[in-house]
């Protein structure tokens, strides 16, 4: 247990603390993307409320794509990853912990920022609560599925745009269900079916993706 806690979790948190600025940048990007929409479409409160959920979720997906690169990049380049793979700890376990801590340190600030985004886009309180629920269930899904593609592209020099090309189509169902949950909340309709579907996708991803990430990291080591 100390092996995982001291060797992996604490190390990840220490690294995240050292790379604070790199963690904050995707969030600043998200804030700016959201700001572009009222400027580009017009500040009508009704329009903003209608497009708001979609805008926030698209911005969340794009910014998570930007932030995800750091997941394995440094450890791959300096060789820490190969040392971890030779430590005898199952690679899937290492992958799951890394993804989870990444989610933890990148989503915390996002949640703190979310009321501001909701205010910018004129979301009502029920809509904001629904948005919060979808973000809580949906962002770990982004991280777990995205990490597979990060593992595959980590050995490439110019992986950034490729990562987006690989992942955007995969994230479409999440976008659809998440925005529709917030839309339902706007109409005061129940939205737990959507949350249940997102939750189901999250459970599937959590069960399968650590092994897929482990395999893709092995492919990258070859």
């Amino acid at each position: 247990m100390n092996r995982l806690w001291h060797g992996v979790v604490k190390r990840e948190l220490a690294l995240a603390y050292q790379q604070k600025t790199e963690l904050v940048q995707p969030l600043m990007f998200m804030l700016m993307v959201v700001t572009l929409f009222p400027l580009g479409i017009g500040p009508g409160p009704d329009t903003l409320q209608r497009i708001g959920p979609g805008v926030i979720w698209i911005a969340a997906i794009l910014s998570s794509l930007l932030g995800m690169e750091r997941l394995f990049r440094d450890d791959f380049q300096d060789g820490s990853l190969e040392q971890m793979m030779l430590s005898g700890i199952p690679v899937s376990m290492i992958a799951a912990i890394k993804v989870f801590t990444h989610w933890l340190v990148s989503t915390g600030p996002l949640l703190i920022m979310s009321p501001l985004l909701a205010m910018f886009l004129n979301l009502t309180v029920p809509m904001y609560i629904a948005l919060l629920c979808t973000l809580l269930l949906g962002t770990p899904l982004l991280s777990f599925v995205g990490a597979i593609a990060v593992g595959l592209t980590v050995s490439l020099q110019r992986g950034g745009i490729l990562l987006a090309l690989l992942l955007i189509p995969v994230f479409i169902p999440l976008l659809i269900f998440a925005t529709s949950a917030v839309d339902s909340a706007a109409l005061q309709l129940p939205y737990h079916p959507q949350l249940a579907i997102i939750g189901a996708m999250l459970l599937l991803a959590m069960a399968v993706s650590p092994f897929a990430i482990a395999y893709s990291l092995r492919v990258s080591q070859n």
């Binding site: 595959l152 592209t153 690989l166 492919v219 070859n222």
Partner: peptide, 22 residues
């Protein structure tokens, strides 16, 4: 695109295979 990004085509095949499965 993923297949094309790798120089080692064997590695490329494996990577593209994972993506096809996803």
């Amino acid at each position: 695109a993923l297949y094309g990004a790798f120089e080692d085509k064997q590695q490329a095949g494996k990577a593209a295979g994972v993506m096809a499965l996803v």
